[in-house]
Design a binder for these strands. Structure first.
Length: 162
DNA sequence: GCCAACGTTGGC
DNA sequence: GCCAACGTTGGC
C-alpha cells in the first residue's frame, strides 16, 4: 500500500531544484520527534511525498518525490562540524533518523498555501498543514487529500480575489 | 523583522 | 511531575 506524505524544506536551504539536480538524496536534519517517528517507523519504500517549500515568499507544494530508502540513522547528528550536530545522538544509540528520497517531478504549477487554505474547512479539513499552529515538518497525507491536491494542479491558477 | 504557537529544557 | 524560560518554526 502506497502511503502519502508532505515534507517541508526551506528552498534557500534545500529546495526542489536541489533534489532535481541530485536526483536522489537523504532527507537529513529533522530534529523533531514526531517527524522522526514517521520517518523511522512508517515511511515505506515506494511511498510518495509532496515537496513543500516553507519559510519563503511563496510557501506551497511544488513537486513530488518518492521514498527510496526507509528510515536509518541521520549521520549528520554525529558530526560536530554539522549544523545538525546533536551530542546526545551517537552511532551506538542514534536519536535521529532520515530516509532517502528520489525526485519524481515538479508540479505544473505550485499549489500555494493560500490556495490550499481555501479548502481548510472542506476537502483538506484534516490536513495537519492547515491546522492552527502546526509545526510538523513531515506529515501524512490521506489518499483523498493527495488526489484532491493533484487535481488542483490541473485547474487554472487562482486569480487575485478568489 | 515580527511574533504567535509550539517544543524542549531544567530547576525545584 | 510541574511549569517558567527559552529556542525554533514559519507565515506574514
Amino acid at each position: 500500500m502506497t502511503r502519502y506524505w508532505l515534507m517541508k524544506s526551506e528552498p534557500e536551504v534545500y529546495g526542489l531544484d536541489h533534489l532535481r539536480a541530485e536526483r536522489r538524496d537523504h532527507w537529513d536534519g529533522v530534529r523533531n520527534y514526531q517527524a522522526r517517528n514517521m520517518m523511522r517507523d512508517q515511511m515505506k519504500k515506494g511511498d510518495l511525498a509532496f515537496f513543500y517549500h516553507s519559510n519563503c515568499k511563496e510557501p506551497g507544494v511544488v513537486g513530488i518525490m518518492k521514498i527510496v530508502r526507509e528510515g536509518y540513522p541521520d549521520h549528520t547528528a554525529f558530526d560536530p562540524e554539522s549544523k545538525y550536530y546533536d551530542p546526545k545522538s551517537d552511532p551506538e544509540n542514534p536519536r535521529w533518523y532520515m530516509v532517502d528520497v528520489q525526485y519524481v517531478r515538479r508540479l505544473k504549477r505550485p499549489i500555494g498555501l493560500r490556495e490550499l487554505r481555501a479548502y481548510a474547512n472542506a476537502e483538506l479539513r484534516d490536513l495537519p498543514l492547515l491546522r492552527r499552529g502546526n509545526r510538523l515538518s513531515i506529515m501524512p497525507v490521506t489518499p483523498d487529500q493527495w488526489t484532491f491536491i493533484l487535481d488542483l494542479e490541473r485547474a487554472p491558477p487562482p486569480t487575485a480575489g478568489d
